[in-house]
Amino acid sequence: MMDWISLLELGVRHAAPILLIAMGCLLAQKVSIFNLALEGFTLFSCFFAVVGAFVFKNVWMGVLCGVLAGVLTAVIYSVFILQLQVNPVICALSINTLVTGLTRYLLKPIFNTSGRFVMPSELALPTIHIGFLDSIPVVSVLNNKSVLVYLSLLLPFILYYVLFHTEFGLNMRITGLNEEAALAAGVNTKKVKYTALLLNGALCGLAGAELALSVYMFNVGMTNGRGFTALAAVTLAGAHPLVALGTCMLFGVSESLSIQLSTSGYSAYLLGAIPYAMALTAALLPRIIRLVSNNMKKKSAERQAIELHSN
């Protein structure tokens, strides 16, 4: 029988990077930018988090470098789509292609290896032990995590407050809903969009740092579709931060379940497909229902008209 406590513990660890990326994605989504470059942002940050930690021999410098790398890619992306008016989807896909190639390529001149680079284990992200958590049965799975994991768990609440209870959040939401109205109301929409995208880059940077430094190594393609999983989580949650916390947790646990299943010989692929199937359903089903119900309403209105005539 599977040990569900360890499953949950692994789930929290897997959910943390997805959650950080998802919160960044959500900010971009709020200003109606559908960011497909999350994968590229995160992979670039993974690489530079490892570079920073290795060069400065300090894990926190690694986190800083990761965040800076994420912000840098976000700056490039936002300048291209906001200033040069390039199609955001194409720009995002080219960033993903470029970053995948670049991180593989740069392993050679920087570390003189190919494929992966493992650092000494003292450069791992330190974990925090909170004494009193051990005594509480289920919550103890939250113990012994790195500070970035705790940050990722707090972030949805912070974002919820910022989005729905501050002026900045209001500006962001109105920019996403109706840009003309926001402009008319005196909101600097370009500034709001830049801010959202740069925050998105910084959060992807944190996710990359957590991903790479918690295992103190860089592996080519180590984001492994997490950017798109986060996108699926945000789509499923309807871009609401607290619901996104739930969906990210769900996907984190399903990822750890798929790892446990594949080691015991079952097919883990279908579990991997769950996030995407759910997001697809979430995107399509409400619209289908609305279409069908509209059709039915139209029919019943026609019937009423017929009945009116026949009377």
Binding site: F34, A232, L270, P275, Y276, A283, R287, L291
Partner: peptide, 30 residues
């Protein structure tokens, strides 16, 4: 999805890519 339901085709397309990739992996393995 785009022309009848008004859903962004990029969302649907990206999700579909991953979905079919995993289904294909499952089918050629099991």
């Amino acid at each position: 999805a785009k022309f009848k339901l008004g859903v962004n085709e990029v969302v649907v397309g990206v999700m579909l890519n991953y979905l079919t990739k995993f289904i294909c992996q499952h089918l050629i393995a099991f």
